[in-house]
Design a protein around this nucleic acid. Sequence first.
DNA 1: TTAGTTCGTACGCTTTACTAACAAACATGG
DNA 2: CCATGTTTGTTAGTAAAGCGTACGAACTAA
Lengths: 383, 383
Amino acid sequence: MVAPDAQRSAPPRAFRPSGKVLPEHARGHNRSLVLQTLYRGGLASRADLARETGLTRVTISDLVAELMNDDLVIETGQRGESRPGKPAILLDINRTGFQIVGVDLSETGVFRGAVLDLDGTVVTRLEVETGGASGAEVTRIATRLTLELVAAADRPLLGVGIGSPGVVGIDGTVLSAPNLGWEGEPLQATIAQATGLGVVVANDANAAALAERSFGDAQGDLMLIRVGRGVGAGLIVGGTLLHGSRFAAGEIGHVVVGTDGGALCACGKHGCLETWLAVPHLRDGLAQAASASERDAVLHRAGERLGIALAPVVGALNLDEVVISGPVELLDGPLLGAAIETFRTRTMPEFHGALAVRMSALGQDIVMRGAAAMVLAGRLGVS
Amino acid sequence: MVAPDAQRSAPPRAFRPSGKVLPEHARGHNRSLVLQTLYRGGLASRADLARETGLTRVTISDLVAELMNDDLVIETGQRGESRPGKPAILLDINRTGFQIVGVDLSETGVFRGAVLDLDGTVVTRLEVETGGASGAEVTRIATRLTLELVAAADRPLLGVGIGSPGVVGIDGTVLSAPNLGWEGEPLQATIAQATGLGVVVANDANAAALAERSFGDAQGDLMLIRVGRGVGAGLIVGGTLLHGSRFAAGEIGHVVVGTDGGALCACGKHGCLETWLAVPHLRDGLAQAASASERDAVLHRAGERLGIALAPVVGALNLDEVVISGPVELLDGPLLGAAIETFRTRTMPEFHGALAVRMSALGQDIVMRGAAAMVLAGRLGVS
DNA sequence: TTAGTTCGTACGCTTTACTAACAAACATGG
DNA sequence: CCATGTTTGTTAGTAAAGCGTACGAACTAA
């Protein structure tokens, strides 16, 4: 179903470039502040918002009027409680008034996508097989999937978010994604051209980390480890995603772990993290295992290597959480336990006492929900 | 010599708390932008500043008038070149008009301090032996040293910066510094009380990292490794210092390195980074070595361990630079070479190709110059 | 019925940066 | 030597943004 106004232009971007700051930038910031407060806290009156943000009621009224004019905020009636004084008119973000398209290109052989509402809830889901496609053919498949999702939306779209494997530049160019046969692929520009919408592209592990922050249980600084055909990570430090100087932050799959050799990796080195932890290697190891205890040993070894590799990172960044995303049947159990145990024995008690290591609860939707979170952050300043 | 106005109140802080943004905050940001442009670029006219910042000449004139009123910016005469048009009046930061006190408490047995100008150049230097003092006695010694430096300044002071060992909270409380016998020591408050000036306290490795960014050759994201009685690190990512969720970012001395045991550490674990790299251990190893080649082997092993520990961090953060600070005669040579070689063999060519690993050129003054940089950043928004 | 409280809005003010316009001070070319 | 063009810095007026004060509306409590 295509709504007539599904491609209506969305409100202006809430992003402040570095450099000079004009009054209008401050306005944008305060706009986002109001949206953020409503997004996190739910229903609130104008007076509530004034108290929470520190702005005056007058300014809040003005900002809310602007946001209601953009259809981003709606009045939901009077507050029920019986209190002295004039009853408050409750406000909320128009959570079902806009939608977002989120796409996940990281799975082997299949691209997933969804139409989501502003809460990150999946409204419509689509999948396409990619077969053995690569290069320009992959771009065509991804574009077609995105267009179908755009057509499936029945509300104005806030934008399109895409999580891609490989190294992704800040401008949404996929600098390198060997699995898809991409090298310097201008994905953001291509999809923006095809859809006429705002498009954000990021690495899949980074998108997953954002999902964990926005829709998961994450509290503070966190590292999300994504285990699939390869191993990647996304880092959120001080509330924002870490990109790295060449946009390659989180690329830990080909760091050598331990000082005792290891299997030969596709990259030519011995003992890369991927040779222990990537799903194909885990499945191979389990297939060759004769007994249940041997299978446990394979998983235990993998978890141990993960702990060895990450202990210096956790120590150096003083992280709160390490969250693992991937096939639950492989990761949640001996592997996770061994990783936690290894952290405990290799870092300072002061740190691993505060450190939480756990599986993500977001499952297979994590990347496309993270992609939606990128759109929310980019266009509304909400996270 | 004490100038009569040495403790004259310094200009207002250039810090914007998170939350709402008022027009005056934007003003402060633009003030800092002008100062930063002058600080980095040197002499410039009002028209030059307008072109570089994107603000109009009118606004720049207004900001400059304000900064000249605060004595932070001075006119240095007309431009020499012969060009058409009205000759430009060149401006500069009043680099010798204010001074900063920087203190380094990280050395064993001696506290160093200095009076510095706004360029981070040392004007006056002072040292005190600490003997075997600890706890409150150490606080008294540090306070006395700071007061002597304040008295030695002959210009109004912008503030006091202190680099302390241990874990330092955002409010300048030293949460834990075993070597000094401090536990929850409110150093910032104590020194601020004693001097009546603005005081900033940070971990010594963090201060050193800031020094490397402000006064060294650092370009982008960097990790500074400080090797002394222990081993610590400071991380600068995206231009700002990384604190960690419990202010313990960079505490990598007690992360276990390798999978082949190692010497017993004071912390109870085996094979901590410090057991290979800390200066006392290096000197012990060298003393026990019989030949030059054995001494090289000791240093080589230490560098190798450093590389093993940091490879995952460099990979995860996609750093540009790793800078090492400490005794040059121990670190610069086989140790540094082995560290570089180890990085090369344990990370992806895409990353270590861009990675620079080198010694700091700032020598023994690095911590107190970093402390001065903290004051510059905190009070003027300049870095 | 009266007093007190809370909510949302109208009005006028201050701050900030902008545009337009202008005088000052230089180089260049006829 | 003088007219012309260029660049600099300043003056005057305008638009945007948030604040404080004040007020009516709508409710509770006595």
